[in-house]
Structure formats: structure tokens, C-alpha cells
Computed example of a mutant assay.
Amino acid sequence: MLDALELKPFVPSRDFDLSCRFYRDLGFEERLVGDELAEFSLGAQAFLLQDFYRKDWAQNCVRHLLVSDARAWWRHIKQLELFDRYPGTRGTPPEDKPWHICQFSLVDPCGVLWHIAHPTR
């Protein structure tokens, strides 16, 4: 029988140390895997941040994170003043989408786009 034990996407970084600080401040737990690779986890969910940058890849890299309360996440980000503290970061406030999720967008320091959402039904 075929199964999968884990799936971890790779996420690029232009400034590895800056991106590591950003994701730690956001609330992820960091585990260094090597000089150019770190695993970031939140509960059972994880991704691998790498010290590798290609503009075309970073600006077309999109991640979707399903959470229990997207509006609470947005308040957390605003309280931390992440957009003021990390150059290049930005976001759009949560809104209800027709496909039954409440979602906001977050762009990390490298240009990676995150859609952070919770189901609305």
C-alpha cells in the first residue's frame, strides 16, 4: 500500500536570517536543519525555509494555511507590527470569499504569498 508520512514544501528566502526572524515572530517554531535550511512548524504543519532565492520563483510561490480563526491571526500580525518591522512584507485584511472561507493575504520578506484562511461553514 502506498502512503505518505509527511509533505513539506520548500519556501525560498532572499535574506535567510531576516526570513527566519519573520517566521519565528509570526509564531512558527524553528528547527535548524543546516546552514542553509530550517524547518518551521506550527503544530503538525511544517515547511522548509531555504537560503535560496530566484525572483521568478519567489514571486510565484503561494502557500495556503488553514487555521481555526483567520481574523485572530490578522489581529496578531497587526499587533506585532510585522509590516513595519519587515521590509517588503504586506497583507490584505480578512474577507469572506464565495468559496466559503474567510481569507487574508500575507507576503513574506522574500515575496512569497500566503493565503491564511478558515472555513466559514
Rank of each mutant, 00 (worst) to 15 (best):
F52C: 01
G88H: 05
F16R: 11
D3W: 07
V67Y: 09
L48A: 03
R24V: 10
L65G: 00
N60P: 00
E81A: 13
P119E: 12
L32I: 02
T89R: 02
I77Q: 08
P9Q: 03
A46P: 03
P93L: 04
L2C: 01
Q50N: 10
P98E: 10
C102P: 04
R121D: 14
E6S: 14
V62A: 05
M1A: 11
A58V: 05
D96K: 12
V107E: 12
P87N: 08
T89K: 01
A117S: 15
I101V: 15
V67R: 10
E39L: 14
P12T: 06
E81R: 15
Y23M: 02
F104A: 13
D25S: 02
E30M: 12
V67Q: 13
D96Y: 02
P93D: 08
L113R: 12
T92G: 06
I101M: 11
T120M: 11
K78Q: 15
D84I: 00
A38N: 09
L66H: 13
V112L: 09
L49D: 03
H76F: 13
I101D: 03
D3Q: 09
F47R: 04
L32S: 12
P87Y: 00
A70H: 07
V107I: 11
Y23L: 00
I101S: 06
L80K: 15
R24N: 09
L5W: 02
G88C: 06
S105L: 14
D25Y: 00
R14K: 15
